[in-house]
Design a protein around this nucleic acid. Sequence first.
DNA 1: GTATTTCCTAACCAAATGGTCAAGTATAAA
DNA 2: TTTATACTTGACCATTTGGTTAGGAAATAC
Lengths: 216, 216
Amino acid sequence: MVNTNTKDISNPISAEAKDKILSAAKAEFAQFGFEGARMQRVADRAALPKPNIHYHYQTKQRLYQAVLENTIESWNLAFEELDSEVEPAVVLETFIREKLRQAQKDPAASRLFANEMIQGAPNLGPYLHTEMHAWLQARTEILRRWMEDGKMLTVDPERLIFLIWAATQHYADFQVQVLALLNRAQFNDQVAEETANFLVSFILRGCGLTPEGETR
Amino acid sequence: MVNTNTKDISNPISAEAKDKILSAAKAEFAQFGFEGARMQRVADRAALPKPNIHYHYQTKQRLYQAVLENTIESWNLAFEELDSEVEPAVVLETFIREKLRQAQKDPAASRLFANEMIQGAPNLGPYLHTEMHAWLQARTEILRRWMEDGKMLTVDPERLIFLIWAATQHYADFQVQVLALLNRAQFNDQVAEETANFLVSFILRGCGLTPEGETR
DNA sequence: GTATTTCCTAACCAAATGGTCAAGTATAAA
DNA sequence: TTTATACTTGACCATTTGGTTAGGAAATAC
């Protein structure tokens, strides 16, 4: 009781259970949000007795925060190639395709984040104003430089990022709707490919860019 | 008990209370989703005793469905001018601005819908496959005709609509994030105007169109 | 081996949840 | 005025909720 942290630091035995719990909780929170999530369902999803969940994560709140932290990390990969003088079209295309790959591979992560935002970001509020703000600042800086250098059209860089986020995450958060309206059974590689191609060409055109090489 | 419907059909006394409840429930369900919503909080929001809620709507499920039905109606207004030979640019611009106006005026409606979709559309599943599918079909039909007539670039019409939905609803569902990242306190008319201008010009460019008259 | 700590679990608990009830108060028809 | 009906409400209930407890297994340390 004095130091419960000792068990957290690299204990191979509990690691497996903790991972199972984390992944089960992620799915539960993603679908139902914090208030709608049920600890018993998390336990069922993880195929473990409920007290195990509380043993490893104490409270629902802590479990939720653990899930958030664990998920946020892998959020905005790609678009990290800033220093190099890579073509804007290539960077943007990579970013869009990567975000869409994530939406397909791990829609729960996107939905978890969406739930937290819809709820008013009660837990990620600080994160928005610090880390995420800094991340966005750095990207818009690059975009602005490209615009000054005439490498792309001048558009509001923040809102360009928002549009890419919205357009890609839509396929994770609103997957049921998309599939229903497209008369598809599942969000497979073909649908993902068609979507990626549309988004890349449409957004690049909005930026005054063309998909491959071919400078304007 | 035999016929509880009689009170539903245009009874002026209860109408006010039912409206208060409906609007309180909309806010609650929008923020927390069906499972996360609490009947007591709905009652508090409506400033009414809890049994009143159950008197008018019996169960949480029925209340939720009433909120959904009441909200869905005002969902995809605009973009209804199909028959007329209005310029694509005008129709699209109107649609985008109208959707964004809704996102600003009534973000709860957007969030309610988002929650239902994230959850897997347990209640709106049929609606997606019927009414909404038909609505989309009719719009894409128009878009396809425009494309055939060379009035706009040929792009996937379904995904174009998805992009507009995603990009506009984003400002309702992710309002906290948007405001935090833009360093704004509230989503006021100025922010809305800037956003609308960006979205209209960006999306029209993606469609190979120019904002005003000026045929290409 | 023994001791100690980590991990697991059936049984349990107080509080909160959706929902009910009985007794009241308006309101309008007769 | 009487009577029936729509509406409101404080008190209540069964169930579910997040969370605990006490004791038992594994695994590790000695």
